[in-house]
């Protein structure tokens, strides 16, 4: 059953067609990966979903609803959370505050009630705090709870960013190269968490990834693109072994020799 769909999406920057009528379908509860060489247009897809860029043509559908009329900040309200390729955390805040910020879309107070810190605001704070604690527990972040993000190692920062996205209680989670910069052990942890997210929290995951071993290990289905065009969409093994995909990654000659 189609949970999230891209239909014939196109966007160009100047003369360059970054995406050319790309379509794909993500089913509810699955982990879906987008792969492709550098510059293929993978992150551009995410930026279009987030509406940092406007699509020239085509549409994204979430549960049958179009994202085209939503503003950037409304995408979060629709239950789509994301992480970034080069970490976009709030660096001068503690881990805890970053996680609590993920709760922003659940906010029911306004600046006037907050000014006086009325009881409902307090309850809301406690509630956010509890949720953040659940995520700290889930991602093993206890040791870093009160540290400033800026002082943490890269791998932990990546985890915090994942945690912040989870704090939004998303239905669709976009992960932009989640394993880049992680060591083997951290990647293993991540694969484990992804599995948990899928099984326990029922979150649908759409990710951009370069690490083929990781893709093979975690992903249900894959879309391969190159030069903004679809090569193939299908089951993981089918896509990874497809000759066109290998050619896009390795180049013409190497495939012939192999």
């Amino acid at each position: 059953m189609a949970f999230f769909q891209a239909q014939e999406i196109s966007i160009s920057f100047g003369g360059l067609k970054a995406l050319d009528r790309v379509s794909f379908t993500v089913n509810k509860g699955e982990i879906f990966s987008i792969i492709g060489p550098n510059g293929a247009g993978k992150t551009t897809i995410f930026n279009c979903i987030n509406r940092f860029y406007d699509l020239d043509e085509g549409v994204f559908l979430l549960d049958g609803k179009s994202l085209s009329s939503a503003k950037t900040h409304q995408i979060a309200d629709m239950g789509i959370a994301r992480t970034f390729q080069n970490i976009e955390l709030f660096k001068n805040m503690t881990v805890l505050d970053n996680l609590i910020l993920g709760r922003h879309r659940k906010r029911r107070s306004n600046i006037l009630t907050e000014m006086f810190f009325f009881k409902p605001v307090q309850r809301q704070e406690i509630n956010s705090r509890e949720k953040a604690e659940e995520i700290i527990d889930f991602l093993d972040l206890e040791a870093h709870r009160d540290q400033l993000v800026v002082n943490l190692p890269y791998g932990v920062q990546k985890t915090v960013e994942l945690g912040r996205a989870l704090a939004m209680e998303p239905t669709l989670l976009l992960l932009d190269e989640p394993t880049s910069g992680l060591n083997m052990e951290e990647s293993e942890d991540l694969a484990f968490w992804l599995d948990d997210m899928k099984e326990e929290l029922g979150i649908t995951v759409l990710m951009v990834e370069h690490n083929m071993r990781f893709v093979k290990q975690t992903t249900d289905r894959v879309l391969a693109i190159d030069f903004g065009q679809t090569i193939i969409e299908g089951e993981t093994n089918e896509v990874l072994n497809h000759p066109d995909v290998m050619r896009a990654y390795l180049g013409e000659e190497n495939v012939c020799n192999a």
Partner: peptide, 10 residues
Amino acid sequence: DSEIAAEAMG
């Protein structure tokens, strides 16, 4: 700290 991330947080 980050307008982009803030917007993505809603």
